[in-house]
Design a protein around this nucleic acid. Structure first.
Lengths: 216, 216
DNA sequence: AGCGCGAAGTTGACAGTGTCAACATCCTGC
DNA sequence: GCAGGATGTTGACACTGTCAACTTCGCGCT
């Protein structure tokens, strides 16, 4: 008995991406199964593989789109032109995204991701937060009239990004639940961190030599 | 033909843990397979399940032991009694551990871990870094003669931990490789961050109200 | 000394996965 | 009109974690 003629699904590729993201949002990336995606769309288990060479490829596409969405989320909050206000707004936006879309956030920064060497487009916008911080810190240094040290600015951008990313990921693990500071964490951990950035970045940065002795 | 009498392996439980950790160190936790552990030990695929109810149980035991080792690593580097020196040493030890044992570090903080509600011992020492930071910050505040605000100290401990954890995890992803600061990162990102903690923590922390305006 | 039971191995099975191979049909371009 | 690619399909394979049942040995109790 010949197999019935398959009915081309013009939007099957996009439907696979949408359904896969739904599973990721509901159950986490590690529970993503392309067979389940196919079942939910009413096609055979091989149909998604007509549009994506492997599970890694569909995952890479979703991660790329998630980075794009995250980048656009950050862009919507950094528009005043005032470097300090922009950094404050961007920090709040960063933590807000991670708090309201924890599985999206995890998706972007989890390991293992598909090999970036094989999927260079996946991380094309992965460091947009870092780029925005670089811009704000550069403008802040220029506004101070002081000498702009590109290396120090990069290190400061990495410092701020690390702190934001660290809080976002610690919040998404269950380890913080073992501490007795849930109530302070959600409400004030982020704003406290953003407040600390001011004094941290106000001190002149040394380019070489040992770290400056902390203020007493 | 009756099955040959199985030869009891007195140390099979420990051997399973050792072999599983070897696989994790070499290939990552997501590649851990108990059937492969059994093959490497020359026993049947079911033998590990005589000592561990499930894959999650052996994983929880390994994670608990890794947290213990991480806690002991940090303890070895925070002994001077001087809060600033202890924080500096502990920060260096933290980043050193993550840099030299990236798969161990990932194991502890990756998602998903086995459900901590079902494995409370797994995360018993998960926040040792936070505890050490609390201690150092409390002693630092007491040495300053100022008023010790437990809430602000907790928030500062979370801030420092977040920054350290963030840098450790960003380093372990491939995203930083897409930036053009590999050379600065390895050599100076950590020391730059530790240097920034001094000024960050020297400013008085507000308990309520908006963040203080950053110094100009 | 004998028996019962638990420990700790074993074999076999099941349901799931990602990926590979081959088939069928339809549509488009030459 | 034909060939070939797109895009479905079915079927198979090798792997996984877990479940079930079997076997043997050793220990404790009577």
């Amino acid at each position: 008995m010949p197999t019935p003629a398959p009915k081309p699904r013009p939007d099957l590729k996009e439907a696979c991406l949408t359904e896969a993201l739904t599973i990721i949002e509901q159950e986490g990336v590690e529970r993503l199964s392309l067979r389940e995606v196919a079942r939910r769309l009413g096609v055979s288990h091989q149909a998604p593989y007509r549009h994506f060479p492997s599970r890694d490829h569909i995952l890479a596409e979703i991660v790329a789109r998630t980075f794009d969405g995250f980048a656009r989320h950050l862009d919507r909050h950094a528009t005043s032109g005032d470097p300090d206000a922009d950094m404050q707004a961007m920090g709040e936006a960063y933590l807000d995204y991670a708090a309201t879309r924890p599985l999206h956030y995890r998706l972007m920064f989890a390991t293992p991701l598909p090999d970036p060497a094989s999927h260079p487009e996946m991380t094309a916008r992965a460091h947009h937060a870092f780029d925005l911080l670089l811009t704000a810190l550069r403008r802040k240094a220029e506004a101070s009239g002081g000498r702009v040290d590109p290396q120090a600015i990069r290190l400061d951008a990495l410092f701020v990004w690390s702190a934001l990313h660290g809080l976002a990921t610690l919040r998404s693990t269950s380890i913080l639940a073992t501490l007795d500071l849930d109530h302070t964490l959600s409400a004030r951990g982020g704003e406290h961190m953003l407040a600390r950035f001011g004094p941290a970045l106000a001190a002149p940065a040394k380019r070489d030599g040992p770290a400056p002795e902390p203020a007493r």
